[in-house]
Design a protein around this nucleic acid. Structure first.
Lengths: 215, 215
DNA sequence: CAGTGTGAATTTCTTCACAGCG
DNA sequence: CGCTGTGAAGAAATTCACACTG
C-alpha cells in the first residue's frame, strides 16, 4: 500500500524528535492523510494503539518496518552504468534503507572495473553469478530502452522477482514478477496536467483526476 | 489523471505499428486497464470513437497530447548537479517529451561551468534570472535533502508551480504548487511489500493494497 | 456486427461520528 | 478526557451489460 512508506518516514522523523508515541491526528497531519484513514490503515495492519494515548512509535517503526521488509536486506543489482545507473549506485539512501547495491553491471568495456560509490562496475556476463551468490531479489533497470526487455528476461530467469524500471520500455514479465516503472517524463506530464487543470481544460466531470488534497 | 500518460505511450506505439485506429479493448489490453474504464476515460475527456471501428489514433494522440501539454514546451530547471542531477540533465527523453532543460544549477564552484548533455552548470544564484527569462514552470530538485526546502521556497517565490522532488525531504509549499516526489527507496519498499504479500504477511482484509492486475 | 457510450450494479476507499477504553 | 476502533454513510472508481450506431 502506497501510504506505508509515508507513515514510516513520518514515524522515523517523529521518533527522532524524541516523542514516545503519536496520535492518529498527528500522524495524519504529518502525512497529509485523513485521521480516520490512518486509524483504519493501522488497525487493518494489525497495529493497535492505546486509547487516550496514541500509537507507540517504536512499535510502529518495528511493525511497519517489518511489513516493508526494512528489517532484512533486499540486495539489488543495477543494470546499466550510464549516468542514471551511476547516480543510483551512488545514492546512499539505498543501502541505508535496506537495499544494498550488490553490483552495477554494464557491457561497456571502458566502464567495467570503474568504481562508483561503493560499487565496482562488473560486466553484464557476471550477472548470473552475482545474482546467485548475493541472493539478489530486486533488479534496477537503467539500460537503454532497447536492452531493457532482454535484461529483464535474464533477471527473471534467475528468479529476480522485483524490477524497478527506469527505461521507457514497457516490460513483459511473468505474473509473479513485480514491476514498477519510474519515468521522469511521465511524472512531469502528470504534473503539467494537474497544473493545466487550473486553467481552462474542458473537464467533462467523470475522469477521476486523483487530485484535491485536504478539503 | 495517472492513466493518461499510459494511454499516450500505448497510442504512440500503436501508431508506429501503422495501425489507423484502436478499439477500447486493444487499448485496454495494451495498458492493463479495463476496457470499460478506457471508454469512460476517453468519453469523459471529450474524445469520441467511432462505433464499430474504435478510436482514430492520430486524433487520440492529438487530444491526449494536448491534455498532457505535449504540444507546448514546459521548460524545466534542475537544481543540484550531483550524480542524479547530471543523469537527469543527460536524459534525452526529457526534451523529446516537451521538457527542455533550461538550466542545471549548483553552488559547487568546481561544477559551475561544466557541461552535461546540452546543459551547462550555472551557479544557483543565476536561478532567478534563468527562471524568469526562460519562463520555467517546473523545478526538479536533485539537491541534498537539507537544501530542498530552501530551494523549493526560492522556486515557488519565482512562480514555479510544479516541483518534482527527488530528495527525501517532504516539501511544504502553497496549495497552488504541485509536488510529486520520486523516491527510489520508497519504490523499492513498495515492491518488496508486494513481493512479501505473496508470502505470509498477516493480511487483515481492509487495507487497500492497490495490487492485483487483470482478473 | 464490431465496438462505442452509458445507465445501473458493484466494488473499493474515504470520511463521519460516536461508543467505549485506558 | 483524549484518542482508538469501527459501524454506517457517503463518495469515488470500476466494471458489467446492453441498447444502439456507423
Amino acid at each position: 500500500m502506497g501510504r506505508l512508506p509515508a507513515y514510516l518516514r513520518a514515524v522515523v522523523d517523529l521518533v527522532s524528535l524524541g516523542l514516545p508515541s503519536v496520535s492518529s491526528d498527528r500522524l495524519a497531519e504529518e502525512t497529509g492523510v485523513n485521521p480516520a484513514t490512518v486509524r483504519r490503515d493501522l488497525a487493518s495492519l494489525g497495529i493497535a494503539g492505546t486509547r487516550g494515548l496514541g500509537y507507540d512509535l517504536r512499535y510502529l517503526i518495528h511493525e511497519i518496518g517489518l511489513l516493508l521488509g526494512v528489517s532484512e536486506d533486499w540486495p539489488v543489482v543495477i543494470v546499466g552504468a550510464g549516468n542514471l545507473g551511476r547516480a543510483l549506485a551512488n545514492y546512499q539512501g539505498l543501502a541505508a534503507r535496506g537495499f544494498p547495491v550488490r553490483a552495477l553491471l554494464d557491457v561497456d568495456p571502458t566502464l567495467v572495473g570503474a568504481r562508483f560509490g561503493q560499487v565496482e562496475v562488473l560486466h553484464l556476463d557476471e550477472m548470473e553469478r552475482v545474482v546467485g551468490e548475493a541472493g539478489v531479489g530486486v533488479g534496477i533497470l537503467a539500460t537503454p530502452a532497447d536492452q531493457a526487455q532482454l535484461v529483464a528476461d535474464r533477471l527473471v530467469a534467475l528468479g529476480v522477482s522485483s524490477l524497478l524500471n527506469f527505461t521507457e520500455e514497457t516490460l513483459v514479465v511473468p505474473s509473479w514478477v513485480e514491476v514498477r516503472r519510474v519515468d521522469l517524463a511521465t511524472e512531469l506530464q502528470i504534473l503539467s496536467f494537474y497544473q493545466r487543470r487550473t486553467t481552462g481544460a474542458r473537464s467533462g466531470a467523470g475522469l477521476p483526476l486523483g487530485h484535491e488534497s485536504n478539503p
